[in-house]
Design a protein around this nucleic acid. Sequence first.
RNA 1: GGGCAAUUAGCUCAGUGGUAGAGCGUUUCGUUGACAUCGAAAAGGUCACAGGUUCGAUCCCUGUAUUGCCCACCA
Length: 723
Amino acid sequence: MSEKISNNIDNINEKLLRPYDPKETESRIYKLWEESGYFNPDNLPERHKEPFCVIMPPPNANGSLHAGHAVFVTLEDLIIRYKRMLGFKTLWLPGADHAGFETQVVYEKKLEKEGRSRFQMKREELYKEIFDFTMQNKSFMENQLRELGASCDWSREKFTLEKDIIKTVYETFKKLADDGLLYRGKRVINWCVKHQTSLSELETISEEQTDQLYYIKYGPFVIATVRPETIFGDVAVAVNPNDPRHKDLIGQEIEVDLLTEKRKMKVIADDYVDMEFGTGALKVTPAHDPNDFEIAKRHDLPSIEVIDQFGKLNEKTGKYAGLKAEEARKVVVQDLEKAGLLLKREDYKHAVKKCYKCERIIEPRILPQWFIKIKPLAEEAAKAVKNGEVKFVTEKFEKIFFHWIENIQDWNISRQIVWGIRIPAKICDNCDEGYADIKDEITKCPKCAGGVHQDNDTFDTWFSSGQWPFAALGYPDNRDFKTFYPTAVMETGFDIIFFWVARMIMLGIYRTGKAPFKTIYLHGLIRDVQKQKMSKSKGNVISPTEMTEKYGTDAFRMALIVGNTPGSDMALSEDKIRGYKHFSNKIWNIARFVVSGAPDTEGTLKEPPKLTEKDSRLLKELGEKIKEVTDDIENYRFYLAGEKLYHYVWHTFADVIIEEAKPRLKPENPNTADRLSCQYTLRKILETSIKALHPFMPFITEEIWSIITDKKELLMIEEWPKD
RNA sequence: GGGCAAUUAGCUCAGUGGUAGAGCGUUUCGUUGACAUCGAAAAGGUCACAGGUUCGAUCCCUGUAUUGCCCACCA
């Protein structure tokens, strides 16, 4: 037997003698995986019974993947590969999002560069162009996902504009209408004058800025306002009912000089008015302020629109018509001053709402829109989190989640854009009433019998993405839905916790009765080494494709895992990625040494020889390490698991175990039993390490596996090591 | 205005009620037959500050400071 043992380096597979070449290896290995069919749970071997599903957050198909996408791909692939090895029937369902507003904004920028504008285009024309643009990006993105090693089931890939998805979304819209949770309301909404659409609360950002607060003589009052240009839309003066200063005037009609006219208006009492602020008197402008709109509703006041959809003053403002609100403010202030109506001005720091895309100030406008009465849905979602049906990986997110969900406001789901799912509703030409109509069967207004037209608006993208888990799995009849819903883990960026995660929980429960996932893992933002946000304009963007080509996907993945704690932003540098490229090299060379020093020519692995005490101890320690790593992965401490494996392989296995093995492996070693024991142990540690590393570094481990084992099967479906 | 977090080595971050850890970077040495994409060694920290609990606190509690983030319809 001993004569068969050889330390001759010629015996080892010549592949291992070459330096590791990630580029060549990765594309070849990915093809192997894809052709094996194992990405598809239906093709997994018999032992894979219990379903385990992760729904991929569908990337916006409007550009290429960035480092943030690489994080989700890496973490989700890690989870899926780990569970697959454990023996679960794993489905990772990939998708792509048409990303309505986001994509339209991207495309509008492109149009602008070409000297075109969406406002000069026909609806169908614009839609077609964005559709082609999206499809092109989509296929590009799919290739990038492959590059990153994503072991998702491409045969089940879904796109948010597919017929069955739209059907599900329509049915949800109808159900909301039937349940009385949907209304088309004339309300003050957030309007972006550049993008010409309304936006939800989440799509606006509040920024603090200092403006002037003007004190204006206003009939018998002095009122304070930051928007004097809206006085033409004033309909009343409001005071606090308990304010002794103004008690006598409540209910009176007063006359106010509004520059263009002297207007008679009522003095009303409303609790909303803060006696402490300004002069305790508030001018009421229902058309351009949400609070004033609410006050007007309570007191049955009319509203006068004086600013148009482009943010310019309209014909009702006389000589000011045509001026942008900001310009009008200056002129109005001047004129007030001339007329002796401006009494005082002071600096005033306050928060202003802006469009989250273009950062232009939001112009509140009254517009009929579809709103969801979200409170009942929010309550169910809160319950699901409270009772543990849904768990956030870091508790801090629960607090953030509860804070938002408990203060939630009705959700405006209408967008005045072309790119998206058109709202299946009819609007009365005559009385402007709206009706959900998913079967396209309403031909005249049920209320006034007037003619109807199709609603021109599209859904907020998040309304459809909020239904993604059950829609993508084919609710309600598809076998996949029955098998895999509720899914196991939702892994995504914490920046979309409200936009997406909260809404998925709400809509998931609403439609299916069950929250769409049991665990939510939220990763932070990837920043550059100076902790700056990555952006194209700063030139500090780390491109996944570039890193993958330079250092190999495995190295890139490790750099994204280690040091990445849930919910915290992570600094990523090229140095770090390079460090893990070195690690890839180390693994490769370890394999080369072990195979040359301990060739499996006589099946040492199948029949363990009698182990020396030292070797037994080494294997026991390996088992303990694996147990720790397993425990870390189970508890979503991927950063720790990765680091521990790294450390074990390099500083224990290579630095200590292999170094100490060298003399024992020499042909001069007269103790054959000792040599055999050593060889067996090294092979065992190598195999176990390769298995445990596979979810982290799938390519190099699969490649080494293919070289060192006689088995025909892929490492990706090997059993996760237990000892 | 509310809320959430962070503060540990030059940088990015782990970590524990009992002598403080990693990666990268730095310095010195080393061309040993797995690996120079390496190895060996070293330097480097009042664990933000002030109190408290404790035999003992970087860790638990309170406060302060700084930083970051989220939420918020006082004109």
